[in-house]
């Protein structure tokens, strides 16, 4: 068994520079946090006296709530800053906005932004830690961590990621969840198969090590250990990325029938929010194969572990 290691990162911007053993250590901490969330009193004093600011430039009540719960369950103070649209509309640069909020003496920012790289830019402008809660189409590391954790906990007889195959179906091009999961699963030794209409599967992504593209769902799920359906946004039709919802459903909807081709213990995942009967068949989402609810439930303990790992032991 892998030794638990100290996590020495200041920020969680993406998982590129996190090692496999750091991720496993984070998941061990998550195990402890899962137990905390099962107690009568779901609160520990670990982060007492620390201030966490959620900085959401793009609306996402679920993710924000999950982080807020994770922070409060460890007794941190939480301030919410809903930046909504752009800061430029107020004539203020992104840096100025951050500097103004920095006066609140935050220890950590949870940043959600519609444009890739913004959390990286911010990390250059503040001494506080930054957790990326989703930036553009680039990364959503806590989502990937909770997806991976859900597989680790939920796959029958789990013996590691090596040799496992994850299939991600849908709008991979615009998906930070897909990019972060690709990075995580391949780092841990799994293979990732991307499936969807060619317009939504960037050629370059298919050339990453451990990643393949496949345009037919039946072929893609063959023998898969986990299949993740991505949310299909109707706006994509307008940009000429696929012709119609019915054509998408016919070719790429994840159904109980198509899952018969997967590994007998294969798990069905969805990062939410789900368009029932568009990208995933409703009955499949409710079937025993589905771990969609567990994904949501693991959000809080995974984020608790992230906050703990970034904030504890930082004094040098």
């Amino acid at each position: 068994m892998m030794e638990a290691v100290q996590i020495r990162h200041r920020h969680l911007l993406d998982l590129e520079d996190w090692s496999a053993s750091e991720i496993e250590s984070l998941w061990r901490t998550t195990d402890a946090m899962v137990e905390v969330m099962q107690r009568k009193v779901k609160k520990v004093p670990a982060l007492q006296g620390l201030t966490i600011v959620t900085l959401f430039f793009e609306n996402s009540t679920r993710t924000r709530l999950s982080f807020e719960r994770a922070a409060k369950a460890q007794s941190a103070e939480v301030l919410n800053f809903a930046a909504g649209g752009s800061s430029l509309s107020k004539g203020e640069s992104l840096k100025d906005t951050l500097k103004a909020i920095d006066a609140m003496q935050a220890d950590l920012y949870v940043v959600r932004h519609g444009v890739a790289g913004t959390p990286h830019q911010m990390s250059r402008w503040t001494d506080a830690s930054i957790v990326n809660a989703g930036d553009g189409r680039r990364a959503h590391p806590t989502q990937a961590l909770l997806d991976g954790y859900t597989f680790r906990q939920g796959f029958r007889g789990f013996d590691g990621f090596r040799g496992k195959r994850l299939v991600i179906v849908g709008d991979v091009m615009h998906s930070r969840v897909a990019r972060s999961n690709i990075g995580l699963w391949t780092k841990l030794g799994a293979e990732v198969v991307l499936c969807g209409p060619r317009t939504l599967l960037p050629t370059e992504l298919g050339q990453w090590p451990g990643v393949q593209r496949c345009f037919r769902l039946e072929e893609a799920v063959e023998g898969a250990h986990a299949v993740m359906a991505l949310r299909m946004q109707r706006e994509r039709m307008q940009s000429g990325l696929f012709p119609s919802v019915s054509e998408y459903q016919a070719r790429y909807q994840l159904t109980a029938k198509v899952m018969e081709r997967a590994h007998p213990d294969a798990l069905v995942m969805h990062p939410g929010p789900m368009n029932r009967d568009v990208e995933i068949e409703g009955v499949l989402a409710d079937s025993p194969r589905s771990v969609i609810e567990q994904q949501v439930a693991h959000g809080v303990p995974v984020r608790m572990a992230v906050l703990y790992s970034l904030l504890v032991g930082r004094a040098r």
Binding site: S86, S93, D96, V115, A116, T118
Partner: peptide, 11 residues
Amino acid sequence: TLAEKEQDLVQ
């Protein structure tokens, strides 16, 4: 100006 450039990559 600096304020214009110190934005996210889209802005």
